[in-house]
Structures are given as C-alpha cells and as structure tokens.
C-alpha cells in the first residue's frame, strides 16, 4: 500500500516534469521576444519603409501587406466557410456525400502549408494568370483557412439547441428562415471566435505566400489586388536568413509585431467567447 502510494508520487512528479519541459519554453520564447523586441518598437519602426537594405528603417509595407492579406482571406473564407458549415449542419442528410465532404475537410486541414503554396502558384498565379499578387495570396490563404472556419462554425451551430429549430419549424418557418431566424443569431459568438482564430493563423503563415504574393522588398505600398506585397512573416524570413548583418533589434522588433498582432487577435477571440458565454441564457 505504501509502495503504491510512493509510486503514485513518483509518477506524478514525472508527469509534472514533462509538463514543465513543454510549457517552460513557451514562457521563455515569449520573454526573449519581448525583451529583445520592445526596444525596437517606435512609431517610426511601425510606420516607415525599410532602409539600408532592410537593416534599418521600419516595416510599414510588410504591416500593410499582411493587413491586406488578412482582409482578402476574410472576404473569401468567411462567407464560404459559414455557408459550408450551414450546409453540413442544417441541410445535409447522413449519407455518402456528407461523409465525403467531411473527409475532404479533414484532408484540407492536413495538407501541408507548402503544398497550398504550390497549388496557389499553379492555379491562381499561373493558370488563372493573377500573377504573384494579393489576390492569389489571399485566395491561397483562404482555402487553407476554410477547414478551421467550417469546423468552428459547425460546432457553434450544433451548440444551438435542437428545440429552437423545432419551434421555428412548428410555426411554419422554412429551413432557411429557421437558420436565419433562430440558429445563426445564437451561433454568432462561436462563429466569430473560430473565424478570428483562423484568420490569425493565416496571418502568421509563410509557406503559402512564398510564391503567391510575397515580395522581398517593395519601397511602395500595393495599389491594386494584382500587386505583389510584402508580408510580416516573409519579412522575418528575409531578415533572418536572406540579408546578412541585420541588427537583432530590427529582427526581434519585427517578430514582436507579428506575434503581438496574432496574440491580440487571439485575446479578442477568447474575450468574445467568454463574454457571450456569460450572457448566454440557454
């Protein structure tokens, strides 16, 4: 008896140690980024163009590029993803087609990001002739983000009680009226949270934009969707591997901006989640 108690203590200590090995580096990484990146942050760093072969100046074009890409991705992925989730959750019967769609979504979420890059290059850049452009990059990121949005939306839709739908149907509402009238309004917080998380992930992706939009260096801002653009993740790649002698300050400053942006999106998402969870009456 004492023996098994002792064993339990030892086992739990090992589990704790493993957890620390997993979690401690996260804290360490964030600390390193903060400590090295904070000194770089200034109004000028955020809002001026890179100078001295990107060793100085700011990151404004990359910031703007990433912003455009997020907006572009959102424009394509959100409507498509939400409609697809509505189909799966509210319309689809349990049959082979539905199963095939589900498998397709699982596979889309598993396709390596660089393969999305190849696909975007071949379909959007070359075949459709968009060239390396914000349009091609956004579409590529959008398809990559779809499974995240579909899955999150589906969860949010299925969390709406079945009885709401029955009430609506029993009053003579059609399926679409039911979806619009009682299902969507009650699923919006969940959809919003999932969508923001999906977009924040897209914002940090590098591989899919490598050949579809990302520019090494552009002194001016893009003016149309057919322009190339700089983007924060790719800019980090360039600063850390392609340009020699970039100051640590500039590198970490850029990293901090990207990570900060993504964390803000994440915080907004979880705030929405907890706010509506508290307000929820059903």
């Amino acid at each position: 008896m004492i023996d098994s108690k002792l064993k339990e203590k030892a086992a739990f200590a090992i589990l704790l140690a493993a957890t620390i090995i997993v979690i401690a580096p996260v804290a360490l990484i964030l600390a390193i980024i903060l400590i090295n990146g904070l000194p770089a942050l200034s109004f000028e760093f955020l809002f001026s163009i890179p100078r001295d072969g990107m060793r100085g100046g700011g990151i404004f074009p990359a910031l703007v590029g990433t912003f455009y890409l997020i907006v572009g991705t959102a424009l394509f992925a959100i409507p498509f993803g939400i409609l697809a989730a509505i189909y799966l959750n509210e319309y689809a019967q349990r049959n082979r087609l539905t199963r095939a769609i589900e498998l397709a979504i699982i596979n889309l979420s598993g396709v390596p990001s660089i393969v999305y890059g190849l696909f975007g290059l071949s379909l959007f850049v070359e075949f459709l002739g968009f060239g390396a452009s914000i349009l091609a990059g956004s579409l590529t990121l959008a398809i990559m983000t779809l499974p995240v949005i579909i899955t999150a939306t589906r969860e949010a839709l299925s969390a709406v009680p079945r009885s709401f739908r029955e009430v609506s149907f029993s009053l003579g509402a059609s399926r679409w009226q039911t979806v619009r009238g009682v299902v969507l309004p009650n699923a919006i917080p969940g959809i919003l949270t999932g969508t923001i998380l999906g977009l924040s992930r897209a914002a940090g992706e590098t591989a899919p934009i490598l050949f579809t939009v990302a520019a090494f260096y552009l002194p001016k801002l893009p003016t149309s969707v057919y322009d190339q653009a700089m983007a924060l993740p790719y800019h980090i790649y360039v600063l850390s591997t392609q340009v020699p002698n970039v100051s640590v300050k500039v590198q970490y400053g850029t990293v901090l901006v990207l990570v900060g942006m993504i964390f803000i999106l994440n915080i907004v998402a979880s705030y929405i989640r907890s706010y509506f969870r508290k307000k929820k009456t059903w």
Binding site: V26, R201, G204, I236, V259, F263
Partner: peptide
C-alpha cells in the same frame, strides 16, 4: 499560446 506562435517565429528563435 504555443499553437498561436507562427512557425516562422519558432524557426527564427
């Protein structure tokens, strides 16, 4: 948080 950090950042670190 770890899941939210982009791979490019982890590569850099």
């Amino acid at each position: 948080l770890l899941a939210a950090i982009p791979s490019i950042v982890l590569g850099f670190i």
